[in-house]
Design a protein around this nucleic acid. Structure first.
Lengths: 344, 344
DNA sequence: TTGAAAGCGCTAACAA
DNA sequence: TTGTTAGCGCTTTCAA
């Protein structure tokens, strides 16, 4: 009896009566193998149930692994959509996805990215991390990187973004068109929305501010800050409502919008009194019981496209690509005409 | 100028004036290194910004990578919770998570698991795949495996499950207690619910059937089949309602329950006419606009526990462990007293 | 406690 | 077109 080790390339070579290099070429579909040899080798592979050892391959060539850096809160269904799209694009390829959640620390995701580099990933999708562009560019010099969601147009890495300015504009136009003037914006903390980050929330906030000013509502500007979770949004909306009553709340994303709706419900405030709009158009927003007006951006497409760009890079593309997803507004019953303004 | 290669263990050894083996011992916290040497080596590591090359380590020792096999639909927030918990348990460890989505094929997830084995993962969390127990046991002989959600108690792998019989019983008891007799069960397809799979949906279905029989409602049994998505559940609930009107629907999970509620809303049927209950207690179930009665099972805990069991195994534990999460019913306004039954 | 040496399974020059 | 050879960076005996 032979040892029950798992078959290696050497075993295959021996069985097929060829060199290891020949086997290597066959499994990589490399140039310069005769059909006869290919057939013999494939026969041996099948017979032995041989599967190439990824770690060994990674030492010389590719690891066939893509890394995705993402915020810790997958519970936000938008990220789930992105992840879904990314996995989708990988189906049928030999590549696999490795996850690097950004911790709660203040490293802005640098640690998570480093963990991916340690694993010799062949490419990285980073979902709007807060690391410095310079840091990212250094990384991108060694490994293909696609930034998802962030608006800086580096020449070092590809990007996949939604047009958040347009999206936010659509929301504001819609809400203002319904007669609202006391429109509050519920968004993430200062660090996340610092303009230099190019973070989607930063861009949406900018557009909110710009729109309010242009509409002559500068003194009505009201920005409430909150955490990433629905529950945080609920609490902070409660606080917001205690300090004065906006007639509409534009939330930075649907997760926050759902929290805001929850808060309104807690206080017995109906949608007719206070409108809410979100961003991302997650599935539940379309549920009749929620019916949340939101900006649709195709998260699945974004994730898929990010991976595609990465694969293209790995195949040899060198010029930078910026892929932009068009947003579109889904108007639902959470936004209603403004009630008569007692202050006017 | 030296080449700008990234530092290897040899570089560290040279700078510290020790052998490579010594460096290896330090980075692995292995037995038999003097404090003085440790310090010297750590100094050199820091100075060079050395990071061990994971692929190289994987060739001899551990890959520091855990694999998680999951259904393709991360969009189900329950899976997101599990993933969240798993990532959580990994924080602060050198381990990373690699994703293996189960394709749409009929291999029952075997391909996905194989991809993980190719990557020499140190352990695998499998979320209730449909692969044969024998297949899994063979796998578990080589690599620690934790099965999440499946009810077979193998001696080869650990399991983390909810008590689905109890959970389903709680739902049925509650609904029946409200006076309902025409209770339908909305669940996944036959393949998924085949009893031998030990799948949670299979167990919930069993309990539904058992309860109905024991309550003398055998002839009222009504099982509707559907896909995993909300939209599929909506369509199939519409069909269900067209063929007779149950007064309550017990859905196999919240995703299906939301689809059922959507269908009821489409037809203008109020919760007072037809009750709905789900399973998983996803976050949105607690939202006042949804207010879905559901069985809470702590997905985050389950994911975290699965990874913990894996790490324990890797550290050397040999006896099998079965971790069970207790379910508890969250009663909300989606379940109401049964309307008077015209058929009675 | 430390180091020397062998080799994990694969790929990439290069030679035949 | 095929094979030979030399490692990739690390861990692991085993000897000093």
């Amino acid at each position: 009896m032979a040892k029950a080790r798992t078959a290696t390339i050497t075993d295959v070579a021996r069985l097929a009566g060829v060199s290891r290099a020949a086997v290597s070429k066959v499994i990589r579909d490399a140039y310069g193998v005769s059909p006869a040899m290919r057939e013999r080798v494939n026969g041996a592979i099948e017979q032995l149930g041989y599967r190439p050892h990824v770690a060994a391959r990674a030492m010389r060539g590719a690891s066939y692994t893509l890394g995705i850096e993402l915020p810790h809160n997958i519970s936000n269904p938008f990220f789930a959509k992105v992840l879904d799209g990314a996995m989708d694009a990988l189906e049928g390829t030999p590549y696999q996805l490795i996850l690097a959640p950004v911790g709660t620390g203040s490293d802005h995701g640098a640690r998570a990215l480093e963990a991916l580099v340690d694993r010799q990933v062949d490419g990285i999708v980073a979902i709007s991390p807060l690391v410095l562009p310079s840091w990212l560019e250094r990384l991108a010099a060694r490994t293909p990187v696609v930034m998802l969601g962030r608006h800086d147009h580096s020449v070092a890495y590809d990007t996949v973004t939604g047009d958040d300015t347009t999206g936010a504009h659509l929301v504001m136009e819609h809400i203002a068109g319904l007669g609202h003037r006391r429109i509050a914006h519920l968004t993430r903390n200062e660090e996340t929305t610092r303009p230099s980050t190019g973070n989607p929330h930063a861009v949406r906030l900018e557009e909110y501010l710009a729109y309010m000013r242009e509409a002559g509502l500068a003194e009505r500007i009201r920005v409430a800050r909150t955490g990433p979770s629905q529950e945080a949004a609920r609490r902070d909306t409660l606080a917001l409502l205690r300090e004065g009553r906006p007639t509409a709340v534009f939330a930075g994303n649907d997760e926050l919008a759902l929290g805001a709706m929850h808060a309104l419900s807690d206080l017995g405030i109906s949608p007719a009194e206070t409108s809410v709009a979100g961003y991302d158009n997650v599935e539940i927003a379309g549920h009749p019981a929620i019916s949340l007006t939101s900006v649709d951006q195709d998260g699945v497409l974004m994730g898929r496209q990010a991976v595609r760009l990465l694969l293209e890079r790995i195949e040899g593309r060198t010029e930078v690509t910026h892929f932009r997803v068009e947003p579109s507004l889904r108007i639902r019953s959470s936004t209603r005409p403004a009630p008569p303004d007692p202050a006017t």
